[in-house]
Each structure stands twice: as C-alpha cells, then as structure tokens.
Design a protein around this nucleic acid. Sequence first.
DNA 1: GGATTAATGTGAAACAATTCACAAAACATA
DNA 2: TATGTTTTGTGAATTGTTTCACATTAATCC
Lengths: 217, 217
Amino acid sequence: MKQFTKHNTRNSLRRIFLYHGLLLRLKSMGVTRVFSYTLAESAGVTPEQVRKDFSEYCIRGNRRGGYLTASLLDEMEVLFRRDRVTNVILVGMGNLGQALSKYGLFIQRGINIVATFDIDPYKQKSRADNQVYSPERMQEIIDRFHVTVAIVAVPDVSAQEVCNELIGMGIRGIVNFAPVLPRVPAYVVVNNVNLSDEIESVIWSVSRMREKQSLFL
Amino acid sequence: MKQFTKHNTRNSLRRIFLYHGLLLRLKSMGVTRVFSYTLAESAGVTPEQVRKDFSEYCIRGNRRGGYLTASLLDEMEVLFRRDRVTNVILVGMGNLGQALSKYGLFIQRGINIVATFDIDPYKQKSRADNQVYSPERMQEIIDRFHVTVAIVAVPDVSAQEVCNELIGMGIRGIVNFAPVLPRVPAYVVVNNVNLSDEIESVIWSVSRMREKQSLFL
DNA sequence: GGATTAATGTGAAACAATTCACAAAACATA
DNA sequence: TATGTTTTGTGAATTGTTTCACATTAATCC
Ligand SMILES: NC(=O)c1ccc[n+]([C@@H]2O[C@H](COP(=O)([O-])OP(=O)(O)OC[C@H]3O[C@@H](n4cnc5c(N)ncnc54)[C@H](O)[C@@H]3O)[C@@H](O)[C@H]2O)c1
Ligand SMILES: NC(=O)c1ccc[n+]([C@@H]2O[C@H](COP(=O)([O-])OP(=O)(O)OC[C@H]3O[C@@H](n4cnc5c(N)ncnc54)[C@H](O)[C@@H]3O)[C@@H](O)[C@H]2O)c1
C-alpha cells in the first residue's frame, strides 16, 4: 500500500480529478507527453501547483521529459482505484435524477450507476434502458453489487431521511444534490452539490464586477 | 454603495450563499431568530466562522440577541442584489439542460431562466411550458431581457465555442457544466461545475477511508 | 564527454483562511 | 442602577495553501 508523504488536502484532491479529466481529453487528442505547464494552462493553475499536487500523491515525471500522458494516466488510475469501475446507486428519479441516470460518460470515469430508486410508483415503470426500483429493494441491491456510494437527488425535505436509510444499509459515501446539509456519522463522506448556489455566486460576482467597473466611468 | 472592509474571499462568498439558503428554510419553518451557532450547526462550520463571514460583508447582528431571521435575510438579499430577480439563459437542452430548465425553485432564489437554446431542431419544438430557441435568436433575447449570465450545458467539444459566442453577445458570467475549462477574458466570470468529479471524489474518499480503517483490523 | 538547456521536485517564504480568546454590547433580573 | 449572563465582533495566533527560488536530473548538442 502506497503511503502519502503529507496530509493531502481537499483542494489538491479536487485538482487531481481535474487533471485526470484533462489528461483523458489530451490522450484522446493524441497527445503523448505533457509538461506541468501544459496541464497548468488547461487547469487554470500554476505549473508549480501541478507539480506540488503530483508530488503530494507521489506521482512523478521525468525531469526534463515531463510526463508521458499514458503512464501518468495509468499511475493516476491505479492510485485512485479508477482501474476498476465503481458501482453506485441513485435515489430520486425526478428531473435531476433522470438527467444523471441518462448520462453516458460516467462509465468512462469509472462510475457505474447500477440501479435507481424512487418512491413514486409512476416513475418505477420499467423500460428497456431504465429500470427504476422501489426503495424496498435498496438493501438487496446494495448487498448484491457491493455498493458503498449513493447519489441523492430527492427533495430537500426527504434528503436527511434518505441519507439515514442509506447509511443504515451500508452506504459510506453520498453525493447530495438537495439544498440541505445532511447530518451523518464521521465515517460517512458527504459531498454537497448545490446548483442554485453555483448559479447565484456567478450572478453576484458579475453584478459586483459591474459596480466596480462603473466607478471608473 | 456599501464598501466591504477587506478583500472578501472566495470561500466566505460560497458560505454566504449557503447561509442564505439555510435561512430561507429556517424562516419557512417559522424560526424568527438565529444565533451564529444555529447557522454554524446547519452549515457544518464553527460559529466564529459564521460571524467572521458576516463581518466581512458588513452584516451585523445584536450582541446577545443574535440575528433576526427576517432582517438578516433582507440585509443579505439587498446586499447580494437578490432583491430583484436576475434573468439568465440556458444553452444546451440535453439531459442536464432539460433538468435545469424544469427546476421550479430557481425562481425562489432569484434566478429566472428566460430562454433556452439548442442547435438541435428536434429539441426546438415549442410546448406550452418549454420553448427552446435556435441559437440564432440569442442576441435578440440577450438584449431584450438584459441578460448577463448564461448556463452552458452543451457537450465538451462545443463548450469553448458556445462561450465565445455568448461573450461576444454581452454575457459576463457563465456557469459551465461541460468537463472543460473555457478560456475567457478577465472581465468574464466562469464557474465550472463538474459532476463527474464530484462523484469521483466521494468514491475515492470512501475507498481511502476503508483502506485506513483496514489497517486497524 | 563536457557544456548547455529544459524540465521536475521540493524546502522556504509568502500569503490566505480558520480558530482562539476575550473585550464590547445587549439584555434580564433584582 | 448595579450585576450577571449571553452572544456578538474582531485582533492575534494558528493552521493551511500557494508561490518562489533553486538544486537536481535528464536529454541534447557540440
Ligand atoms: N433539477 C434541478 O435543476 C435542481 C437544481 C438545484 C437543486 N436541485 C435539487 O436536487 C434535488 C432533486 O431535484 P429534482 O428537480 O430532480 O426534483 P424532483 O422533485 O423532480 O424529483 C425528486 C424525486 O425524488 C423522489 N423522492 C421523493 N422522496 C423520495 C424518497 N424518500 N425515496 C426515493 N425517492 C424519493 C420523488 O418521487 C421525485 O421523483 C432537489 O433536492 C432539488 O432541490 C435540483
Ligand atoms: N447529464 C449529466 O448528468 C452530466 C454529468 C456530468 C457532466 N455533464 C456535462 O454536461 C453537459 C451536458 O450534458 P448532457 O447530458 O445534457 O448532454 P447532451 O448531449 O444530452 O445535451 C447536449 C445538448 O447540447 C446541444 N448542443 C450541442 N452543441 C450546441 C451548440 N453549439 N449550441 C447549442 N446547443 C448545442 C445538443 O443538441 C444537446 O441537446 C456535457 O458537457 C456533459 O459532459 C452532464
């Protein structure tokens, strides 16, 4: 088991995933060799940052030669268990849940949505591409596919309850799209994604920028 | 125009939006008064952090009395131009675009999607609830509704091109869902949301946690 | 092979964010 | 009005992150 030298930070982890995505694209474009400044450029950070991040996860290149795209990807994928696909489940097949479940490129990133759930019987209709289960079958499916990560796309009022149930059934990681922060035990990882906030913060930054600008007119 | 005392940080801005969302919920639950520790609890941060954040944006409460939910919300909404609704457009009506366009609660957060666009003529069919325009009409609609912010939900290969066009038409803020970082001039704000990364980082944190745990077994 | 060049890798320095600690204010109570 | 209590607001200390500066390494070119 590889040991990381230092306490790896939340930020550097985020960026590692960013680099990974960029590398996949670069590879598909036929780029065989990258340099810290290549990645830095596409990722919008400094070259030092890229190297420091790699360093933190014990990923190393060739001095002078940069990094070979393919072997860098290999190394990252082994390191991050991306060498095999991870089964996840998705709870809440409303607007957002359906969009996520139809997204074809998750599998390229090693994310396999093995089953989706909804309490609404109307949504549980089975079509060839898209079987939506009743939550009653959740435990069975979690066990069968060794699922440890779930995506939660239910309304805010149900989110805490759904998270509690999932954790009781063995889920240890949750990506939560409801605009509440679920309370969970310390051994469970939660990532809250709030799309309204993402949009609002841009709106606000733009209006701030305009104000500042108007001072110079 | 209110001046902020210090260089406000990216993180504190994020949290301010988080607090705002939480406050809306608290208010709707009939809570009239909150304390820094109330918010801290729901936001998963320390009370000092909440107060520091407020302090940074010149939001103040009553010593001993905490904050009145309603007036705190008022203050935040005025401060963040949330007192009026902002018109935004949405480009790319695929899986994700459709989910976003159907989301009914954006308007509660002052986000009004005034028009959606797609190059696919099949998606441009007009239904009562959901008119999808051809990109040809973008300039006209941006001008008519004074739109400065756009949501981009097109495939990665089109994202840069779409961003360029939008900026040329006067857009100054972009929420980008494509897994690429568009290159934009300094006067344009971009917020990149990468849903694959969000899921992957949870998968990885869970697998790391399990490894660490297994050392103790 | 030695000099030159172009990259990485990383400790040290600078900067940023968070937590601590406590003074200042507001309210309640007598 | 004095006293005690509660909670805010914030400078100072701490902790975390990024940038800088340069030693180190590998390839290339006389
Ligand atoms: N759609 C968006 O663009 C968007 C934007 C911002 C935030 N969100 C948030 O994401 C979440 C999902 O959004 P949406 O638009 O898909 O909502 P939605 O109402 O369309 O879908 C929610 C689904 O969850 C199901 N559900 C409710 N309780 C459940 C339970 N206990 N177990 C299983 N399924 C349950 C419902 O039947 C419904 O199908 C919400 O919390 C919403 O606030 C969505
Ligand atoms: N759906 C998801 O859950 C999900 C998850 C992660 C990332 N993403 C990313 O979000 C983006 C959208 O995802 P999606 O699943 O909705 O994709 P999609 O392919 O379903 O939809 C993309 C839409 O954009 C339209 N389009 C293409 N070029 C255009 C242009 N120049 N102008 C206007 N419209 C154009 C297409 O006609 C299509 O309707 C993609 O970049 C995708 O990688 C989506």
